[in-house]
Write a protein that binds this DNA or RNA. Structure first.
Length: 563
RNA sequence: GCGGUCGUAGCUCAAUUGGAUAGAGCAACAGGCUACGAACUUGUAGGUUGGGGGUUCGAGUCCCUCCGACCGCGCCA
């Protein structure tokens, strides 16, 4: 084989590993002729003493070689040293340990990553467009009140995932569905009407199942201001749709303001009612009927859900001809999957039972495997050691706006996405507001601000030189290498978060980057008298700043220049 | 009862989907600024991964079975 790597053009970690894989494949052929072909793959060991990367080929080879993994690994390394001495320029260490082959890259490989990140800026590691269209639905709420915090969590998760997917080259379309088609809108209309009447008659009864809380009062007042008392004593059939429509529009507008304040802009606000009016619901149902997956019983139309793993068949169209909520789900997913290759829903904690059902719907529609469902689990709100009570029944709802007022957008976005979506979240308002080292948001932001501060102190010509590209050959301190290695992980981390629908991994990575930077800062004086070293370290700072800013951007958190 | 999600350090959570001695932060204890922001950092201590079986070179991860928590199970949405 020929290695095209030269001193002038240092190898990237990827090319170094590719060279190693090729050499190892040859070594296997030499040492163990006739063995089945094995793909040489790498992973990053958890423990630093095992090097930057390791490969487990010896385990896969051991059986065919009738030897132990340890012996195979040792033999392969001996073969590599004898027949591929060029690898020495790329790897500082190639060691067989307990059956693994552990690799430590030469500093030049890591230096080349730093140079690349400085050069590519915040676009570092982005994948080109891959042509896959993804519909991502999250947050969606009933238009019957202000957004509550669990919907905020779904928004944090969904929007972070959306940005991470864009980074990976997906064509992402984020949408919100307004559940304005069901009986709840009637309830909303009656609730507002009761508030309207109570303005002149304090004894007017509030509906048993109405929406409590004060937030409907201003809507009622606005109606009275604009339209006077003409609805007092009118029949329900006259005012119901009118009141419901005004309330829905007002509340949806409010939800929209909250979401935008939260840093999210939806591509589509889809009214469920509009789907009905456009005949989309009927089209979805027809699709199932045509596929022979429905039957009629007692005047209702059933979907054969049991054929897709559900425990009972489900009604699609009621005896009176009105479609059920399930019909909406069928239709909306049918509609989405016609314009997208994948549909991902981020749902609330009360929708656990729907994961299987939605996947069953996708399969029934002929789109098996193209729907994914994430559940944003419940949030327990704390203020220090004290639990904040949230009784929706009593009208004591804590809204997303309340939380944003108290702790700000940055902390809320970060905390809501910080742990696995499936796990319930304990959210401490006191901690989120705290500007201390207990607070991971400030820890990460501080890293960014600290770098900005160093650039303020440095001379303009140094900064310009560092950004234009400079010799990085002095970067070899363990803290420098550790930081560079961490920065190089960005693309892999984002891809991983996307592939596993695990956006919380990005917050951990952000903390890891900040941690490695702070350690580097403590151990290495940046603005040293040695010009070459100073410029190299400034370049490393710039690369770190790019990566931190990029991760924070994906998370929807600001990257401050000073704090 | 059936189905879903989960159970990891005192607390809050990770663990590159089957890899090596299970890692961080907080809390506890002991250190580090005449240095570019101490909103930082170094170290110590902390575990039978709910229990028990199985699969294999190798299991927190996969399978079975108990225990426990939360959530679903309507011609509501």
């Amino acid at each position: 084989m020929s290695l095209t790597i030269t001193e002038e053009q240092p190898a990237s970690p990827e090319s170094a590993l590719a060279a190693f894989a090729e050499a190892t494949a040859q070594a296997i052929g030499t040492r163990y002729p006739g063995s089945p072909p094995i793909e040489v793959t790498f992973e990053a060991p958890r423990r630093p003493e095992f090097g930057d990367f390791s490969t487990n080929v010896a385990f896969a080879l051991a059986r065919a070689a009738r030897s132990s993994p340890q012996n195979v690994a040792t033999a392969l390394v001996a073969e590599l040293r004898a027949s591929h001495p060029q690898l020495h320029a790329l790897f500082r260490e190639i060691e067989p340990t307990a059956g693994f082959i552990n690799l430590r890259l030469a500093p030049t490989c890591w230096q080349s990553v730093v140079a690349r990140i400085v050069r590519e800026g915040e676009r570092f590691g982005e994948s080109p467009q891959n042509g896959t269209r993804v519909s991502l639905e999250f947050g969606s709420a009933n238009p019957t009140g202000p957004l509550v915090i669990v919907q905020g969590r779904a928004c944090s998760i969904g929007e972070t995932l959306a940005d991470a997917m864009r980074y990976c080259g997906y064509d992402v379309f984020v949408e919100w569905i307004i559940n304005d088609a069901g009986s709840q809108l009637d309830t909303l209309g009656r609730s507002v009407y009761a508030r309207y009447r109570q303005m002149t008659d304090p004894n007017y009864p509030f509906p048993e199942d109405g929406y409590p809380g004060d937030y409907l009062v201003p809507i009622a007042r606005a109606i009275r201001d604009a339209e006077g008392d003409r609805w007092d004593g009118a029949a329900e059939s006259q005012w119901l749709a009118h009141f419901a429509a005004i309330a829905r529009d007002t509340l949806v507008a409010g939800q929209r303001r909250t979401v935008e304040r939260f840093g999210i802009r939806f591509d589509l606000w889809q009214s469920e009612r509009a789907l009905h009016e456009e005949g989309k619901i009927a089209a979805g149902v027809r699709r199932l009927v045509d596929a022979g997956l429905t039957y009629e019983r007692e005047g209702a139309l059933y979907f054969k859900a049991t054929a897709f793993g559900d425990d009972k068949d489900r009604v699609l169209v009621r005896g009176d001809g009105r479609p059920t909520y399930l019909a909406s789900d069928v239709a909306y997913h049918y509609e989405k999957l016609q314009r997208a290759d994948r549909a991902i829903d981020v749902l609330g904690p009360d929708h656990h039972g729907y994961i299987g059902r939605l996947k069953g719907i996708a399969a029934a529609l002929g789109y098996a495997g193209r729907v994914d469902v994430m559940i944003a689990q419940q949030i327990t709100l704390m203020r220090g050691a004290e639990q904040v009570s949230m009784s929706k029944r009593a009208g004591h709802i804590v809204t997303l706006d309340d939380v944003l007022d108290e702790v700000g957008v940055d902390a809320t976005r970060f905390f809501f996405v910080m742990i696995a979506p499936d796990s319930p979240l304990t959210f401490d308002l006191a901690l989120a507001r705290e500007k201390s080292n207990d607070n991971p948001v400030y820890y990460v932001q501080y890293g960014h601000a600290r770098i900005a501060s160093v650039f303020d102190k440095a001379t303009a010509s140094d900064v310009a030189a560092a950004r234009a590209g400079t010799s990085l050959s002095t970067l070899e301190h363990p803290a420098e290498i550790a930081l560079a290695r961490r920065l190089a992980e960005l693309p892999k981390i984002v891809r991983n978060a996307v592939d596993h629908l695990a956006p919380h991994r990005l917050t951990r990575y952000a903390r890891d980057v900040a941690s490695d930077f702070h350690q580097f800062y403590t151990e290495c004086k940046i603005l040293t008298d040695d010009r070459e070293r100073r410029l190299a370290r400034l370049a490393l700072c710039q690369a770190t700043k790019n990566v931190l800013a990029r991760v924070l951007e994906i998370l929807g958190v600001s990257a401050p220049e000073s704090m």
